[in-house]
Design a protein around this nucleic acid. Structure first.
Lengths: 205, 205
DNA sequence: TTTTGGTTTAACTATTTGGTTAAACTATAT
DNA sequence: ATATAGTTTAACCAAATAGTTAAACCAAAA
């Protein structure tokens, strides 16, 4: 019997390879042989360890969603002033996306499909991120006259849009502005501060 | 011989069906049989009229890119004040996306792939939208002290992000905020004014 | 050394997919 | 009525794909 360490190694190899291939190609575009090649193993092992393409995908997708969403809830629940909350969210989120640039497009593309959506609903089963907590906080700030009147959903949408979209449109942005990968990533780093400033300048009274 | 009107009808049926299926499923997920079913024709006709899946896709993708990008250039080239330009862009773009909600995700997903990117570069062959014209205008406004200092690329990214991302993240937004399709589209209509206001409030001195 | 249980391999299988083929169909011109 | 050219169909095909199978391999225990 191969020892425990070796077992983890094959399984881990598969997961790492699957993550790469699924993130780049999506469920439909990924090929089991490609995953096996990337993992440096025989294709039959994919089924031995994970039974089917769908099951392997499910694991990768679940992890992707877990990375994209739940920490948001925690950040939204924190008892801190609104501007500080915005800063923490933007900083955390952009940093996370810099580490996982393929993530948003991967997730958004898969939930475009009925099957992906159903799966997402299953993950959320009663545990959706606390967007309403943030919404309430925004409404209170508006009511107190601390910020300009703005709908919570629109403000949240603006914030999330500015964090996420540049990663989803990366090839287009690089092509339009004639920048390389390094320059793009630098611009993303700058956005940690820039987006916060932009939002606060917009809503501050 | 079937008359000219009938010929257009089969070809048009295929294009309309292909557009639907490719936009929803992408190149990898779309099946020729599905397109044929949706068009109400025999699958062999797809090859008779368009030779191959790739060629049919190319036509649909080309049209999608043509819709997403080139008008941008025209709007950027207009000799109007910056705030007015922002307003025209946002208004036009969101209206266009309301008509074609699948568009951005479709295009961004395909250009994620090398083949899609190469194709995009081919379309742009020397005719990229005039982002540098807009960039220059932003720099001049900054220099004149009319707006706060901001990098043109960052401002443009903010603007485009807030127009496009909500459509790409539509299923997620609907799920998180518990809104239906009608409510979502209404929120998109509101954004025509809201995004402009948000941007101008942020950069105005 | 043999047995045992887990891992890996190479060959194979069934299904799906994009594409091909040849005949049937259709409408028009002669 | 026949020939012609374009359109459509149903059957077929080759390749790709996800998955299966049985044997070989490996390491540890008896």
């Amino acid at each position: 019997m191969v020892d425990e360490k070796e077992k983890d190694s094959t399984e881990q190899k598969i997961i790492a390879a699957a993550k790469q291939v699924f993130h780049e190609k999506g469920l439909d575009g990924a090929r089991m042989q490609d995953i096996a090649d990337k993992a440096g193993i025989n294709k039959a092992l994919l089924h031995y360890y994970f039974r089917s393409k769908d099951k392997l995908f499910e694991m990768i997708f679940r992890e992707a969603v877990a990375r994209l969403i739940p920490k948001v809830g925690i950040l939204f629940l924190e008892d801190v002033p609104l501007f500080e909350k915005i800063e923490k969210f933007v900083d955390f989120y952009i940093a996370m996306l810099i580490e996982n640039p393929y993530l948003p497009l991967f997730v958004m593309n898969e939930i475009q499909k009925e099957s992906g959506r159903e799966f997402l609903e299953g993950i959320f089963n009663g545990k959706k991120p606390a967007v309403h907590v943030l919404a309430k906080q925004i409404e209170e700030e508006v009511a107190k006259g601390n910020i300009k009147p703005i709908k919570p959903m629109q403000l949240t949408m603006n914030m999330v849009s500015m964090c996420i979209f540049p990663f989803m449109g990366r090839p287009m942005i690089k092509l339009l502005w004639d920048i390389n990968e390094e320059q793009f990533m630098q611009a993303m780093e700058e956005r940690k501060k820039h987006v916060v400033q932009f939002i606060i300048d917009s809503i501050r009274k």
